[in-house]
Simulated scan of single mutants.
Amino acid sequence: MGFKKVKDHAGRTRIELSKYWPDRTRYRRYVLNPTVAKKVTARIDEAIAMGTWRELKEEFSRNGGDDPKIADFAEVYFKEYCCVRNSRPDFKEHAIKPIVRLLGSVSLKSFKRKHAHEFAEKLLNDVEPATVNRSLAVLKNMLGFAVDKEYLIANPLARFKLLPEEQRPTRILSLEEYWRLIASHDDPVAVAYAAVLGETAIRKSEGIRLTWSFIDFQQRLLTVERSKNRKPRYIPLSDFALGMLGSLPRLDGCPAVFIRAENGTPWHSFQGPFNRAKEKAGLGWVGFHDLRHFRASQWVMQGVDI
Rank of each mutant, 00 (worst) to 15 (best):
V6C: 05
K7V: 06
R14D: 05
S18V: 04
Y30C: 05
P34H: 04
P34I: 06
A37C: 09
V40G: 02
T41M: 11
R43S: 04
A47W: 11
D66G: 01
D66T: 13
D66V: 12
D67V: 04
I70W: 04
Y77M: 05
C83P: 01
S87Q: 06
R88I: 07
R88A: 10
P89A: 04
E93W: 05
I96Y: 07
I96L: 15
K97M: 10
I99P: 04
L103V: 08
S105H: 13
S110P: 00
H115S: 07
H117E: 14
E118P: 00
E121K: 07
K122L: 11
L124S: 15
V127R: 08
E128K: 15
T131V: 13
V132D: 04
V132G: 04
N133R: 07
K140N: 09
N141C: 03
M142S: 07
A146W: 09
D148R: 14
I153Y: 01
N155I: 12
L162C: 02
P164H: 02
E166L: 02
P169I: 04
S174K: 08
L175E: 15
L175W: 07
L175M: 11
P188G: 11
P188Y: 11
V189R: 01
V189T: 13
A192E: 04
Y193M: 12
L197Y: 06
A201Y: 03
A201H: 02
E206S: 08
L210V: 12
W212C: 10
I215H: 01
R220V: 06
L221M: 15
L222H: 11
L222G: 10
L237M: 10
F240N: 04
L245K: 02
S247T: 02
L251N: 05
G253C: 05
C254P: 00
A256P: 00
H268Y: 12
H268D: 09
N275K: 08
K280L: 09
G282R: 02
H289K: 10
L291W: 03
S297F: 05
V300A: 07
D305C: 00
I306G: 06
